[in-house]
Design a protein around this nucleic acid. Sequence first.
RNA 1: GGUAACGUGGCCGAGUGGCUAGGCAGAGCUCUGCAAAAGCUCGUACAGCGGUUCGAAUCCGCUCGUUACCUCCA
Length: 496
Amino acid sequence: MNHPLSLYNTLTRTKEKFEPLQPPFVGLYVCGPTVYGHAHLGHARPYITFDVLRRYLQHVGYKVRYVRNITDVGHLQNDADHGEDKIQKLAKASQLEPMEVVQQFTNSFHQDMARLNVTPPDIEPRASGHIIEQIEMIQEILDNGLAYESNGSVYFDVPAYNQGHNYGKLSGRVIEDLLANTRELEGQEEKRSPLDFALWKKASPTHIMRWSSPWSEGFPGWHLECSAMSRKYLGQQFDIHGGGLDLMFPHHECEIAQSQASHNHTDAARFWVHNNLITINGKKMGKSLGNFITLGELFTGKHELLQQAYSPMTVRFFILQAHYRSTLDFSNEGLQAARKGYLKVMNGLRILDQLQYPTGATAVDAKAEEEIKKLTAELFAPLADDLNTAKAIANLFNLLKKINSMHTGGFKLETISEETFKQMRTEFRTLVQGVLGLKEEQTTDAQALLNVVLGFYKEAKEVKDYAKVDVIRAQLKGQGIVIKDMKTGIDWAYEE
RNA sequence: GGUAACGUGGCCGAGUGGCUAGGCAGAGCUCUGCAAAAGCUCGUACAGCGGUUCGAAUCCGCUCGUUACCUCCA
């Protein structure tokens, strides 16, 4: 298991060589969605990015346990009204059970991910299913003197924690600066310091999502679930924690603090990896800004900003064509270019399947051999350098040119050895399908194709070319389809 | 205001001291019944100004512009 994967670690702000704690096992935790709405293009990015990371780790031989949570107990909405559970708010409005809302959006999320060919995580824990673990964790933090109870709620004591630890180590914040810039928000009188955050919140009488705890009927704080669930399934310390850049502060910072404060004072994860955001007209795409396009809208083209529908693989390719740590700007032009690029790769894949190495070839040319070997070796190399999918795809196109030439005859296959040819074929396929996770999409409509054939059938009948008519009938029958000549026209049926 | 990024050819987007990124769009050529696909060739890009260096898109400084986080958000 010796390979040179380096990853950018937000904790150290440098690229570091990746070494698992217990090779060959790798524990990977990624913050999952809060299921109070349909997933949008911005959501696609981390899940595709970390899907590729997971696939790559597996490709180089690691055994990965990938945990991605579903947050379904609701994040507090900290706007003008005191803080209301988003899921609960929606549930009231539509007269649904909160869990019904959660299930709907969870199903929708799963569907979108499947279409994007994102492999499901190995464990997908729900926050609502881990209330006990979260309560336990709060108790530990209380026992360590780093949290306090206030009117039925429990708050994390940031200044106390900061005495022995470094609150802000991940996001580069300094506690004094944070204090100097704190805004006065309502409903904060229970806190000792404005920086303190809730571990447990006492439920108001109208709040329906509530659980019993030693402190009150209430619900867990909005950073706790990730700490509790990552620990449960990956241990006190694990290898990689991923998520969007916008979660770095406060979410991930709080996660680190909670984890440190509740157990052995070890960092929860050794590598903190953050993907950058998707922008639209240069601005972050986000729920709060209302400038998002859901994946469903993207796939159907039903959104005022969309000139056309973009298939899931187009979206995947679009995202992978940029490095995960750069912002990526949405545009129709960008998506359309991605679509063409994606189709080019798919055409290449088809051609590769058709290529056959000639038997008894003996015209190996050292230069050609070397060239293909080099291009092949360059396919995976960029992924080892902080998962540079953009460069890997660029290298893919460079090899694809040669493959296309092999197909059209400009590049004689026998000028490379069979071994090199097979290696090239395997690596190209593995990169495209196995690691980048690009799959062929059925872009053609079977019914439309059938109509074309029926058109020829009709023409043949009209000119009484019965030989051709018979051939068409026989061929279609071979496909399980029978032609029906009716007075009203030509139709078809499945052969019964 | 604090902190952190970014500014690359028509568009998207890699690259972080010398070696062609790549895709899309555009032009020309080859192939071709026509077309398409494919291949080949082409654009003398690195916000501006100054500095370091034999050499900078890449390092340093300043200026301008954009963004993110600091409040739920992937």
